[in-house]
Design a protein around this nucleic acid. Structure first.
Lengths: 98, 98
DNA sequence: CTATTTAACTTTGAAAAACAAAGCACTTTT
DNA sequence: AAAAGTGCTTTGTTTTTCAAAGTTAAATAG
């Protein structure tokens, strides 16, 4: 039998990063605070997971302004969309036997 | 919006434990070495993850003999089956938006 | 105009988890 | 008798997770 977990992406082992991605798939742009509230996280925790996703080029940050106040939003990249889809495919393959 | 990751089971954040469970769902009894080879793990690593699953009452250990040689096998419990299913449901709910 | 609050982090540090390697008791194979 | 396999446990390192506090800059309240 083939190793069933080999195709899972390590980055998505984390429930939080999984949650961020699943939110970003349906919201093409979302703010830091919205994510924080949806996932019920502290600033630092969310920021570090977002950082991991950004390092991997799975999400992109947009720093803009609302008036003169900064506003940071995040969106998924093409690579991120693909990697997330691959991960879900691997998951599905793993459990299709059910 | 509701927290999309709240219903995920922390025990299944681990790819390895996820793999063990997915194997046990289709094999009602499997040996330590088989698992080790399927998942490509070291003894210690596998043993500790199995231990976590056992503590949670998600798997059961059977210590027996083949002739006079010890043989340890593992199987999924009813609770484990249920918890795994719930986790998969939560995952599916999370990504159904796709 | 001063004080507090909010946004979005970064830094720090502690706790937990993952993991490999080695050791071990016992047995079978060579 | 020596080597190898089974199924662990122990040890110790590395990695990951996370909360808390600090930070900068702007907004708002008093």
């Amino acid at each position: 039998m083939k190793n069933p977990i080999a195709d899972l992406n390590k980055i998505f082992d984390s429930r939080i990063r999984l949650g961020v991605m699943s939110i970003l798939v349906v919201n093409n742009e979302i703010g830091f605070n919205d994510l924080k509230q949806m996932l019920e996280l502290t600033d630092g925790n969310l920021a570090s997971h977002l950082n991991t996703l950004e390092q991997a080029d799975f999400i992109k940050v947009h720093k803009g302004f609302i008036g003169r106040k900064t506003s940071t939003t995040y969106s998924i990249t093409a690579l991120g969309k693909q990697a997330f889809k691959s991960h879900l495919d691997a998951l599905e393959k793993m459990i299709r036997k059910l």
